[in-house]
Design a protein around this nucleic acid. Structure first.
Lengths: 264, 264
DNA sequence: GCTGCGGTTTCCGCTGAGTGGAAGGCGGGC
DNA sequence: GCCCGCCTTCCACTCAGCGGAAACCGCAGC
């Protein structure tokens, strides 16, 4: 690990998590492993810039400026903004949960969750992560991810949440093939016994899967198959506004021809 | 301005705006005023940390990690999370716009906007800012802000958006007094001729105004007075979940002394 | 009151990390 | 071909970042 100022700054920021949304200076110092003095200076510089704020108890928390900045993230609020009307549609239909997630590393990151009052319990939180094999959106994202990632997840340990969690590699492999064939997934009681989710892929302008949309409803109260057209319609709508050729009816020749990432 | 690495880093990040959500290295260098080489190094360090990403054209954009981090901001997503169900209620009632904003500096910063398909046009964008005197939420926030801020806005130049914008200091002062008396505001055609907004204050655990909620509807299609109970009910609901004594009916002696939306 | 404790802030001399000019590479337009 | 804009690597100088030491502050317990 480098010891540049930049990396130290990010280390300081990384000490914030959903379990520690606000911290004292000493906590930051301990968690980051930086000497107190150093943490003090860095924190103050972040404070000057508005990246951090202090609450009335003197504890540090993520500042509003950082939140405004992050609102510019194309894969964050940008995507969410475009998808929102369709998410609303999904929410309206069940008044339970409508969710939008993207792939990052080996996790599904949740961009949005609209939930009804008294809806069934979910672990999801906006800005939070869940493993790919245990969630509807995760399975969809994994099914369309790089072969490499798929194999690594299939091979790796698969945490079991309930007795319905797909925890076997080969079973998972078949599951992913089914998802590619069907264009949706029903993930029933895989993360909590009380709920199931129906998810479908959202395509971006490069016609690759950019996100996944899902609904989560209580197990036993819905025939999940009736929710499939709803989710697929929402997914198609989102793909369309993202400019996906396959969803807008454009011929393949109009595809954008851009190269994948250039890792330096 | 200091020239610390930290401040340079933040300067780099500050070059991103909603007009420039993705930039080339040279653009960042020019806009930040940093030598190309320096910008290059800083940008790469931000890239390593996941604060920035590169898109398929090699342009830099705000990274997903930064967005996840910002989701921890108590005054950002934290507040939004608690307010969301009530915002949904407001949205349901008109299917136009439901908005949530907080005060920062001399601006209203919008935390959330739920909008119907085909709703009337608004300038609002999530993560964006608008001046206090021209918006419903802004007037509410200003009416309950420090005396100092109020006077500074009253004195300062008041940008006129339409002929209905409150652009006179004394008129604004009276307006603010009315808002404190009534507990809501109807801001009609003040920012665009086509729309009006109804807004009310949301109280935090310290019984000070923490945010403002509003709806925006097309001018002429609604009697704004009929929307007042709706907005006030939503505002009260939000105040309650934030733990505001005045909204929960608790005696002052039971006041919580810490912020409600970080209930450690 | 005094004492200890946990957290915060200021001070300051040493030094290696950050700096940025120079130069080379890449690609696209004419 | 040539030029131009953008990106990347290299490297020697020096000043900004570093962090130990010590003071400071508020509070709880004796």
């Amino acid at each position: 690990m480098t010891a540049s100022v930049s990396s130290r700054l990010l280390t300081v920021l990384r000490t914030f998590s959903h379990r520690t949304p606000s911290q004292t200076l000493s906590e930051i110092s301990r968690r980051s492993g930086l000497p107190l003095t150093t943490a003090h200076r860095l924190v103050h510089e972040l404070l000057q810039g508005g990246a951090l704020e202090r609450d009335e108890d003197g504890r540090y928390r993520i500042g509003l400026w950082l939140w405004e900045l992050a609102a510019l993230a194309p894969r964050g609020l940008g995507l969410r903004e475009l998808a929102m009307p369709f998410l609303e549609d999904v929410f309206e239909a069940t008044r339970q949960h409508a969710q939008l997630a993207v792939l990052d590393g080996a996790d599904a990151v949740f961009l949005e969750r609209i939930s009804g009052r008294g809806a069934v319990h979910v672990f999801t939180r906006v800005g939070g992560r869940l493993p790919l094999h245990a969630t509807g959106v995760g399975l969809v994202l994994l099914a369309h991810a790089d072969r490499e990632l798929q194999e690594s997840v299939i091979a790796g340990p698969l945490q079991r949440f309930t007795r319905h969690t797909v925890a076997d590699g080969e079973q998972l492999r078949r599951r992913l093939a089914d998802i590619r064939r069907d264009g949706y997934v029903i993930s029933s009681r895989a993360i909590e016994e009380i709920s199931l989710s129906v998810a479908a892929p959202v395509y971006g302008a490069d016609d690759r899967v950019a996100a996944a949309v899902s609904t989560v409803v209580p197990y036993g109260q819905y025939d999940p198959l009736t929710l499939v057209p709803l989710i697929r319609a929402a997914a198609r709508g989102m793909s369309r506004v993202l400019g996906a050729p396959s969803a807008s009816g454009l011929p393949k020749s109009v595809r954008r021809t851009s190269l994948p990432w250039q890792p330096n």
